[in-house]
Every structure is written in structure tokens, then in C-alpha cells.
Amino acid sequence: MISIIIPVINEEENLKKLLPYLQENNAEEIIIVDGGSTDKSREVAEKFSAKVITSAKGRAKQMNAGGKAATGNILYFVHADSLPPKNFSAAILNHLTEKIQFGCFRSLFDTKNKFLRFNSYFSRFKGMMFRGGGQTLWITRDLFDQLQGYDESLKLMEEYDFIKRASKRSDYRVIQQDVLVSTRTYDDHGNFRTQLVYAFVMFGFFRGIHQNKLLRFAKFWLK
């Protein structure tokens, strides 16, 4: 069984779109991990019969809490503002093997903007620089447990760290189907600025720059 885990903080509007979409496409278990919403995220989740749990704020903490609460032997981490392909369950099961125990999809920004469409194109390739949380991530329960989940000390780049560690234990697959990804951060701060900040943060993270410095940098330029 595939357990879908969605970390949220104030994602009421996105959940109204995502949850019925997942149900229409045969989702077996949906777990909403609320990190302290002040809107109606919990009410919306309960309306669509999703399991709602509470966690300390922080994406890594929320995803780990969801992983612990899940009953499936495959965990599928989805951002509230992303829409997986309609046949996501079958696609995951078709690519799961003994050698490939985790993976993601390509991403496609929900826009006609040529810059962001060009950006999306590279998500079809393997390699850390082409990854992103919006692509969603699936992983076997066994491998998730071996890794002891996400690193809860991280305030950013937790998914990149997770993929890096998982890659040491298993090969992974980028399924050549698109997850529709929100452009809200790009819309708020501009395409070029947002992409440049993301690039600097990724470079700094893998160069060992302390996460607090990277977080201050990102907040300054994306405030």
C-alpha cells in the first residue's frame, strides 16, 4: 500500500484542490501532517476523510511524523501545492524493484512562462542539481527506516540531504511523467531572483556552509 504524506501549514486552498484529486485517482491512505495551521487546513482535510495528525513545525519533523503514522509499505511525500500524475500509484509500483527503492517524478511548473518551462525540462535528468521537493518523493518503508527518516536538525534542504543519503543505499528512478508544480514563490519574488537564490543555497549547502547562514540569506532575498 502507498501512504501519501502531506506536510502543511496554512494550505487550506491547495488542499481543496489536491485532496479530491488524490481520491479520484485511487489514493489508499492520505496523511495530513499539520505543523500549526491557523486557517481551515485541518477542517478541509477531515472533510475529505484524510487522516490528520499534529507535529512540531518544520518540514523534516512533519514528514517524519507522517512516516511514523503511515501504515503503507511505500511512503509518498507530496507538497500541498503539487499535483502528481493521475496514474502515480501504478507508475510508482511499476518502477519499484529490489535495486530501485525510491524515486521521484519530473516537474512541470504550472505556467506558460518560458523561463520556468525551460527550468522544468531539466528535472527529467538524474543528479542532485536537478532535484526539488515539488517533484514529490516515494520510498519504501524499509529504506526510510534504515535512513531514520529526514534529518530534523535541518531547517532547509532536508529533501536534498535525504536523497543524498538514500542514494548511498539504493539506486533511484526519475519517472518520466510530470508533477504539476506551483509557481507561487517565483510569482512573489520574481523568476530570476528566486532561481538565483535557490542556486546559491544549494551550492552553499553542499559546500558545508552552516544552514543558519543560508537561511538568513534566503530570507533576506526572498522576504
Rank of each mutant, 00 (worst) to 15 (best):
K155G: 14
K155T: 07
K155H: 10
K155Q: 13
L156Y: 09
L156E: 06
M157K: 12
M157A: 08
M157F: 14
E158C: 06
E158G: 03
E158M: 06
E158Q: 04
E158D: 09
E159N: 10
E159W: 06
E159G: 01
Y160L: 11
Y160F: 15
Y160H: 15
Y160Q: 06
D161K: 01
D161T: 04
D161M: 05
F162K: 03
F162D: 03
F162I: 05
I163N: 00
I163F: 00
K164D: 13
K164T: 11
K164Q: 15
R165I: 10
R165E: 07
A166E: 05
A166W: 08
A166T: 06
A166D: 03
S167Y: 10
S167R: 04
K168V: 06
K168D: 13
K168C: 09
R169G: 00
R169M: 15
R169P: 00
R169I: 10
R169N: 11
R169T: 03
S170T: 04
S170P: 05
S170C: 04
S170K: 02
D171V: 02
D171H: 10
D171F: 14
Y172W: 11
Y172V: 07
Y172D: 04
Y172P: 05
Y172S: 02
Y172N: 09
R173T: 06
R173H: 08
R173E: 14
R173F: 11
R173K: 15
R173Q: 14
R173C: 12
R173A: 09
V174L: 00
V174Q: 03
V174M: 01
I175N: 09
I175V: 12
I175F: 10
I175K: 09
Q176Y: 13
Q176C: 08
Q176M: 13
Q176N: 15
Q176G: 07
Q177G: 04
Q177S: 08
Q177F: 07
D178Y: 13
D178R: 01
D178K: 04
D178L: 04
D178V: 01
D178H: 13
D178E: 15
D178G: 00
V179L: 08
V179G: 07
V179P: 10
V179N: 10
L180Y: 12
L180K: 15
L180G: 05
L180F: 12
L180M: 14
L180A: 07
V181T: 13
V181F: 15
V181L: 14
V181E: 12
V181P: 10
S182I: 05
S182T: 09
T183C: 10
T183M: 01
T183L: 03
T183V: 11
R184L: 02
R184N: 04
R184K: 01
R184G: 00
R184F: 00
T185R: 02
T185S: 03
T185G: 02
T185A: 05
Y186G: 01
Y186A: 05
Y186Q: 01
D187T: 12
D187G: 05
D187V: 10
D187L: 13
D188Q: 15
D188K: 15
D188Y: 14
D188W: 08
H189C: 09
H189P: 07
